[in-house]
Structure formats: C-alpha cells, structure tokens
Design a protein around this nucleic acid. Structure first.
Length: 662
RNA sequence: GCCCGGGUAGCUCAGUCGGUAGAGCAGCUCACUCGUAAUGAGCAGGUCAGGGGUUCGAAUCCCCUCUCGGGCUCCA
C-alpha cells in the first residue's frame, strides 16, 4: 500500500503507508533528515515520529527556523526539568515553555531549598550527560484519571490537569494547552530514562540533537503569575540550533550590555542615582542635563508649530483635586503618601491631567477655541515598587511630555489622526524609524457607555489607518476608562520599547463637568485626549542612549567638537578655531597638550565626540585643521577650516529632514 | 513587595585558612611638548554599605537593615 503526501513546495510524493515524517525526511535528503526537528502536518506541529496519512500536507521543520528553534528550546527545557529531578529527588516541576531566545522551567525544591548560581553549573553538567545519552522522547496519551495518578506526587502538574478536568473552576487557558492538557485526554512525553512530563509537544526525537544551550540565571516566579500563590524558582536558559548561533547570541547580549544606559550614564558622566536622594530619583549632571534640554527645546518648538500651547502646573495639589479626578479612588497605590498642611491634605501629582483640566475650566470655552491643545513638560511622582525600578526607564520621579487635547466630538477622528502623525514625525526626528502600534480596546472591568467606547475606539482605529503605521489590536487591554494606542519602537539592536501613548478619556470630562458652548448656543461636553509622546523624558533619554550606544547624533551631542593642539604653542590657534566654531553655535572643548596626543585622542573617542580636530604647525601656516570624525578609520589632514564649518553646519541644526508635519 | 546574586578607593576589580587593605584607571603635583585610541615619576585617596553577634582577633563566619543587579508581580 502506498499513500501520497504534499510537500511544502507543492510537489506530491508517494510513500509507503505507515511511513513516518522522519522516514520521509530521510528519503528526501540526508541533510534534511539531520536538520529536522519536527513536522507540520496540515498546519499543526507534530513529532517526527508521526505516521503520515494519505493526502497530508507536510512541512518538515528544520532546526534553524523560528519554529524549529522553538522545538529545540522546549525540548531543552524538558531536559532541564529532568536534570533537576535527577539532582533533587522529590523536586516539583511546574511549567517550562520556550520563550524568545530560550526557555525557562519553574521548580519547587524539597524542604524549602533554593537554587544558587553554583547549582546552575551542576544542573548544566547533568543536562549535557542526558544529551549525550541520546534519550528518546516518546509521546503517550493518558486519560485524565490516569494522568492524575501518574503525577500523584507532582502537585503543579496535577493542578493543571484538574483545572481542565473541571474539578477546578477555570477553563483551560493557552498555558495549559501548551502543557499538553486538552479536554478529555492528556499528552505526556516520556524519556527513555523514565522522566515524564505533561506536554503538548512536539519534541525532538532524541536528546542527542540538543546541545547548543546555556543556563543563564535563576529567578523567582509566582506559580501561575499570581503573587498570592507560592513562589517558585525559575531557571532561564538560552538554546540555539548550533554552537555558532549560541555564541552569536551571547555576543549580542554583551553588545546590549555595553549599550546599557545605566553604564553609559556613568561612563559619559550624564546622570546618577544618589542613594541619599532615594531609589528611582535621578540627578542629571551638566552633560546629561544639556542633552535633556536639547530634547525638550526641540520638542517645545515643534509643539508650538503644531498648534499646542505650553502651560505650567505645580507638583502638588490638595486631595480635593484627586478626589474629583478619581485618582484617589483608582490610582492611590501608585501615589506618594499625603502631606498635611494647614488643615489640608496635599499629594504629589501622579499625572498632569487634572491640572490641565482646571486650566480649561478657568473660563467659559467656545467651540471656536477647539481643539484646545495644552502641553507641558510636567514632572510627576509615582510610587513604584522597589523591585520594578530600572535605571531611567522606570523611575519614581519622571517628566512627561504631556499633552491634553480638548475637542468637539466631531473633531475626534481628525484630531487623533493629526496627533498620531505628529507623534511619529517627532520620533523620526530623533532617528527612530521602526514603529509598531497597539490598539487596546475595552476591558471587561470598565466604565462608560457602549456607544462612547465604540466611537472612541473607531476614532483611534481611523487614526491608525490614516497614519499607515503597522498595528495590532489588543482586545480588552485598554484602561478601564478609555481605549488607547500605544506606540512601540524597535531600537538599533532590535529591542522593543513602549514610548508614546494616546488615550481617549471617557471619564474625566464628566467628573469635572467640562463643557463648551457650541455654534448652536447649546452647552456640550468636550472630548479629551491624553497623549505622552516621549512617554517620559527620562525613559526616552534612556532609549536614545541605548539606541545610539552613547554616540548621540551631532545635534544632541553635549560636546560636538574636541580640539587638540599638538603642542602647547598651538594653543592660541586652537582657541581661534574654537571661536570660529562657536560662532556657528557649535559646542566645543579644547584638550590642552599636557599629555601625548594619542592619549587625548583616545579620551575624546571614549567620550564619543562626533569630531576630534587636531591642529599643529602646518595648520597654523595654512588655516587648516586635521579632522578625525567619529566612526571613521581615516583621519583627514589639511582640511580648510571654512570647508569643515560648511560641512558640519547642516548637522549643527537640530532635527533631521523629515521632522516637520505633513 | 517576593526569590536569587551582589555591595572593598570616584570607576573596574583582587584580597587564600579569620591575623587588621591591594592593583589598574580616574584625581592632584612635577617632568615630558608629542600629528591621530593609553608619556613617565611621585602623591593622595578606605568606618571594606550600615548595625548587631561569634571570636584573643572579622572585609572574611552568623543575624538584621539599607542599597544595587537579574527575574516575578505591577505599569495611565
């Protein structure tokens, strides 16, 4: 008997009945067979041991594809659990999925034991033994009741099974499906040594195909992500299709570490976090403050051009304000504690919106004033839990480039579209170009009328379509009072950061009883849009530093040109050159000749100065300079000063070309 | 907040078995005056995060606190 299957390239192939995917791969080529880790049968991932049926559409998954890596990682996680249960008999294992670049597995050790860093080496050694043994992964199906017996001494596995079996209340979620539980039957994998795990699979045929992995770290993780449940020990690892790919990944991690804004902040003398001030509260040194100022100045100018009016509001306000706004109701945990003064209670503001609303309400508003766009670099304070603080990316005192736009209901779609374009144009001006947006819709727990939500969500959707930006819809991920758009960007080494956020607020205009007089002389309620563009200046600062690895574009560099006289007697000429450049608003420093030139070059390079100029005898006589540009391997000699000035003057002016609106 | 790991000079780090603190860079002084990624010498710099305990003796062992990092949870 023979059957016919369809391969990924569309061709048909006749194979004997009973043929498995792995046998098919062997028939096609030895190379394919060696590189295959799983198979997609009619679109579903399966083990290579799967017996093929007539008419199946097949795609052999090889190890270097994303899906192939996922299988390798998942199988490696499985080996990790096996190693841990070998070394700690009685250890409970919970879940162990593949994740970006690797995998993890959560454990609970007997007698309250915890893993230490040294244990990772021990576990890794055991894993390598298992890999060497070439243990086969075999898939089996169990009934729910047999499964519960099988995992009698594995409480977490049992809980997963019981949940699905209806002995608990929750329906199966994605995680449980991943773990191999489905209505009525369990999918279980057993190694040849007897280790058994609940798992949907697929897995590689034997552990021998694994090996390019490394355990990275141990961390705490709550069972099912719930901080009320037991805290387990999570081991993270990375795994790849080859040692080469693994090594490349480790090099990428090193590269990312070099770009860490906390490290760069220290090296380039930009900011630090004095313990005397407190966690999450940075101070900016002169160079860091200058960069901030350049960012803010540019932003302010563009906001003015785009029809925003800048406002200023204080840092604290009486509790009354936050009672009206509702912050004390739903955001209290995120607020700094209150201060009592003259019988009133004051809070540091966690957001600027209530104060901007008061500016709106300071007088009667006409439809002729709308949209009213208020804008502020507003510093807010939020009580972030100590464990979440992370350099400038997550702080307790932050400055939002915050805007609140009040418009008539019929202006909402066009205003949002305009706003999103503006946001993108500013982000581009900072040299960022890889964006993705996320539209978050109404969550289950929320307030407001259905028609309001629909209208606001449709307006946001319209804006996204107008902007042409790629976006996904995150169903039910909106704030409880408003749908929103979040803009994410990818930096130079592919990391995603969330920056801008746009929200259509359905609550605050009501809470503050805001209104305007329309052209028909009736009072109407304005719509309100919250918008942070950088997100926070601190965070955006961090993103820029990491994106550029500290080598900021000319217009943001705190020092743009470093001038190095070769000898002391060239100092006067160096000053002349400096003055000429300063006439064009260049930020210049001179490194005097009290140490050898090579040493000074090195310092300037480590400071990532865009242009290092060397001036000596021949330059004085002919009015030239030596130019050593950042990133260039070939310093230039005898460049006429005027020529250099005209070369850099476009760079000295803030902003790249596509920064303006429309 | 929770789990794991750290905290030694401004920075990066060494410090063995518990015997009382060390290097490089940075800083300062002096000399050197040099054409493209580290000139040399000298000086100064420390309550070994803080507190408590064990000990004849603690950077080192134990406990507590603070703080930083990696995660979890959280994130308008």
């Amino acid at each position: 008997m023979e059957i016919s299957v369809v391969l990924a390239d569309g061709t048909s192939r006749t194979v004997p009945s009973g043929c498995t995917a792995s046998q098919l791969a062997e028939m096609i080529s030895r190379r394919l067979s060696e590189n295959s880790v799983a198979v997609k049968v009619n679109g579903a991932l399966r083990d290579l041991a799967t017996v093929l049926s007539d008419g199946d559409h097949l795609e052999i998954i090889t190890r270097e594809t994303e899906e192939g890596r996922e299988v390798l990682r998942h199988s490696t996680a499985h080996v990790l659990a096996q190693a841990v249960t070998d070394l700690w008999p009685g250890a409970h294992y919970a879940i162990g999925p593949a994740i970006a670049d690797g995998f993890y597995y959560d454990f609970e050790l007997p007698k309250g034991e915890h893993f230490t860093d040294e244990d990772l080496e021990k576990i890794e050694r055991r894993m390598r033994e298992i890999v060497k043994e070439g243990q086969a992964f075999t898939r089996m199906e169990y009934s729910i009741s047999d499964g519960i017996k099988l995992f009698a001494d594995q409480p977490f596995k049992r809980e997963i099974i019981e949940t699905v079996a209806g002995q608990a209340t929750e329906p199966p979620d994605e995680e449980e499906l991943n773990e191999g539980v489905n209505e009525g039957a369990l999918s279980v994998y057993r190694n040849s040594s007897g280790f058994t795990d609940l798992c949907r699979g697929p897995h590689v045929p034997t552990t021998r195909v694994l090996g390019s992995f490394k355990l990275m770290r141990v961390a705490g993780a709550y069972w099912r992500g719930n901080e009320k449940r037991p805290q387990l020990q999570r081991i993270y690892g990375t795994a790849w299709e080859s040692d080469k790919a693994l090594k490349e990944h480790l090099v990428r991690l090193e590269e990312a570490e070099k770009r860490d804004h906390r490290k760069l902040g220290l090296e380039l003398d930009l900011f630090h976090f004095p313990p005397e001030i407190g966690g999450g509260l940075p101070v900016f040194h002169p160079k860091g403050a200058l960069i901030r100022q350049l960012m803010e100045d540019y932003s302010k100018r563009e906001h003015r051009k785009a029809g925003y009016q800048q406002v200023w509001t204080p840092h604290i306000a009486k509790s009354t304000l936050f009672e009206i706004s509702g912050h004390l109701g739903w955001y209290k945990a995120g607020m700094y504690p209150p201060m009592e003064m003259e019988g009133a209670t004051y809070y540091p503001k966690p957001m600027n919106c209530p104060m901007h609303i008061l500016i709106y309400k300071s007088k009667g508003r006409s439809y002729k004033e709308l949209p009213l766009r208020l804008f502020e670099f507003g510093t807010v304070y939020r009580f972030e839990r100590s464990g979440v603080l992370h350099g400038l990316a997550r702080v307790r005192g932050l400055t939002q480039d915050d805007s609140h736009i009040f418009c008539a209901p019929d202006q909402l779609p066009s205003e949002l579209a305009r706003l999103l374009k503006f946001v993108i144009s500013i982000l581009r001006a900072f040299g960022l170009s890889d964006f993705e947006a996320e539209l978050s819709t109404r969550p289950e727990k929320s307030v407001g009328e259905d028609y309001e939500w629909e209208e606001a969500t449709a307006a946001l959707d319209h804006a996204l379509k107008e902007s042409g930006i790629n976006y996904t819809v995150a169903h039910g991920e909106g704030a409880f009072y408003a749908p929103k758009i979040d803009v994410h960007l990818k930096d130079a080494i592919g990391r995603r950061w969330q920056v801008s956020t746009l929200q259509v607020d359905l609550q605050e205009p009501q809470r503050f009883d805001m209104e305007f007089v329309d052209s028909d002389n009736t009072r109407k309620r304005p719509y309100m849009i919250h918008r942070a563009l950088f997100g926070s200046v601190e965070r955006f600062f961090a993103i820029l530093l990491e994106h550029y690895a500290g080598a900021l574009p000319m217009w943001l560099a705190p020092v743009q040109v470093s001038i190095l006289p070769v000898r002391d007697d060239h100092a006067a000429y160096a000053s002349e050159v400096a003055e000429s450049l300063q006439k064009f608003d260049a930020r210049v420093e001179i490194l005097p000749a009290d140490e050898p030139l090579g040493g000074r070059i090195r310092k300037a390079k480590l400071d990532k100065i865009p242009y290092v100029l060397v001036v000596g005898d021949s330059d004085i006589s002919s009015g030239t300079i030596g130019v050593n540009a950042r990133g260039s391997q070939n310093p230039e000699r005898d460049v006429p000063l005027a020529e250099f000035i005209s070369r850099i003057s476009p760079e000295l002016v803030a902003r790249p070309l596509d920064a303006s609106l429309d």
